[in-house]
Design a protein around this nucleic acid. Structure first.
Lengths: 339, 339
DNA sequence: GTGAAAGCGCTAACAC
DNA sequence: GTGTTAGCGCTTTCAC
């Protein structure tokens, strides 16, 4: 493994000159420049990242925190993050927290060790607030993506969850439904809460009193949503909700399967919607009507913003809200069925 | 940001002593040890990774190369990788190559810069051979996961693709099928080729001549598999394959959808199988019979092996083949339908 | 236009 | 049992 000294010796110049041509940081005569370049080629030289990092105090690496990369919501976001990071010459550390604060602590540690120059957090939990705040206090670049943490003064890229909730409810209302349920996520999830709020608003506008039993918190996962749907299915047909909005597509799959298992036809007996617009929502056998969340864009913009932040420290905090849209397919039996 | 010097001063000891207690690398009297620990606590000290890395020539980071994290095959593998890396105190760089050799080059560059101590490659293409070999020549730890690269002398963790192909074909044969097609992946993909080989072997054992038109190479993706299935659907019923094995579950979804779009019933008119056993294969509306590939285990073992390799250089090359199994659901109309 | 040299924060060899 | 110090490979100031 050759070092800058080897190059200098080989090219008959000083190490300073080598550094200057490598980083284009000062004029060097064409002659020497060429000799340096030749030497680099010849010795197959690659600068050592640790040495450079130690000197200039940067790692050219960013951290990406997700709760669980095997949750199909995240891969697109992660892809976007890596795509833009790569483009700017940054590497990305992927960290799965599994929602354990302990893992978040390790991420913060990496930040403080200088292993990463900035952090994208897609899964900011209440339990992480203090940790994240400590980073912010040190002016360490942090951007929240997808999930907000109320009151934390960090950049935030999210999607319009409130609007999404409204869109979903209004769609069901327009189809003539009145008893519309919302299977939300865990209590305290701001994403879920915003969506519920939008739903409630649309219901209010329609003059409908929302029964407590229509808003069932739980996990946005398949199994838990399945169970919640079973409860509905067991209610009397004239009181049972005729429409179910699930806070995630994966959950909506659980709803769909529970309905089928209980002999309920979709959309005739019960209409179903999800959130996210995962790839699987488009399969012919699924055709899930859903609210599309721009996952790639979330990741892209979060990374762009973080990189900007890393460059020139103190800019005003940014809060961007990406638009969502309704994707009408078959599970609500809409007029706009798309084959 | 405090340094080891600050700690030394604060604790009234030398920097060496601080280093010794931090790394537990030599006996230090309880008295001093405690003072150091107190100082670390008090000044909220975290060692600088670049400095340490420069000195000891390690980054405590591994690289994970996937072609595309948004391909649902990879997240589980990536999760496993991160889980075990974390456990051993390593971070993981995720690199999406999108099958562009250029991206692989960047990964190799990171290796040579010392940003990573080892590399897991899940997507070794023929075009990457030279690059990978150059790493191996430098004794840089590389383990191939999932996809082999024939003749490359690196550790390899793969699944039993040949057996998988046999399992699939035999299942179809046992159900009475004779005209069994195999929609393979891109020509040259060793995974696909092994599966096809297994299928061919099972067909041979059954005494069936495999028609050329039954083995259609293409992309393992949804759209391309859909198109290939359309071709079959357009054949006369008495010559058309009655069973389709697709090299991936995602592709099998395309097959399923194409069949439905062409008015073919599954499994009555055509039986369908996939490979992988993605989460979506289990949905009630899908119930895809498939060959399960142990994705998490692939990632886990690859990472364990890589970490072992990083520790003590020269061990014998390992080649492990993980067993696969048949998951019988509904798309072949098997006797063992599981509701 | 170029070079000498200090120093980033750490580990570990060497000395006592 | 502990301290002094060289040096990892690089960037950049300062001097010419």
């Amino acid at each position: 493994m050759s070092t800058i000294k080897d190059i200098a010796r080989h090219a008959g110049v000083s190490v300073a000159t080598v550094s200057y041509v490598l980083n284009n940081t000062r004029y060097v005569s064409p002659d020497k420049r060429e000799r340096v370049i030749a030497a680099v080629q010849e010795l197959n030289y690659v600068p050592n990242a640790a040495a450079r990092g130690l000197r200039v105090r940067e790692s050219r690496t960013i951290g990406l925190i997700v709760s669980d990369i095997s949750n199909p919501f995240y891969p697109d976001l992660a892809k976007a993050c890596e795509d833009v990071a790569q483009q700017y010459g940054y590497a990305v550390h992927m960290i799965n927290t599994n929602d354990q604060p302990e893992r978040m602590r390790q991420a913060v540690s990496q930040a403080r060790e200088g292993k990463i120059d900035g952090l994208i957090v897609t899964t900011a939990l209440e339990a992480d607030r203090e940790l994240l705040q400590s980073l912010l206090d040190r002016e360490f670049p942090v951007v929240l993506a997808h999930r907000r943490l109320e009151g934390l003064d960090a950049d935030l890229i999210e999607s319009d969850n409130y609007e999404g909730g409204m869109l979903a409810a209004r769609h069901m209302l327009a189809l003539g439904h009145r008893r519309i349920a919302f299977l939300s996520g865990v209590a305290g999830s701001p994403i879920s809460e915003r969506r519920v709020a939008g739903y409630l608003q649309a219901m209010r506008e329609a003059g409908i009193d929302v029964l407590a039993e229509w808003v069932l918190p739980g996990e946005a996962k398949y199994a838990n949503s399945y169970e919640r749907m079973v409860q509905y299915a067991d209610m009397a047909p004239d009181t049972r909700p005729t429409a179910i909005i699930n806070v995630s597509d994966i959950g909506a799959m659980g709803v769909l399967d529970a309905a089928a298992d209980r002999g309920l036809r979709v959309p005739e007996d019960v209409a179903v919607m999800g959130f996210d617009d995962l790839f699987l929502a488009a399969f012919r056998s699924v055709r899930l009507t859903t609210v599309r969340i721009p996952r790639y864009e979330l990741g892209r913009q979060a990374t762009e913003l973080l990189l900007k932040r890393i460059g020139k420290a103190k800019t005003e905090r940014r809060h961007v809200v990406l638009p969502v849209d309704l994707v009408v397919r078959k599970t609500c039996g809409s007029e706009q069925a798309d084959g």
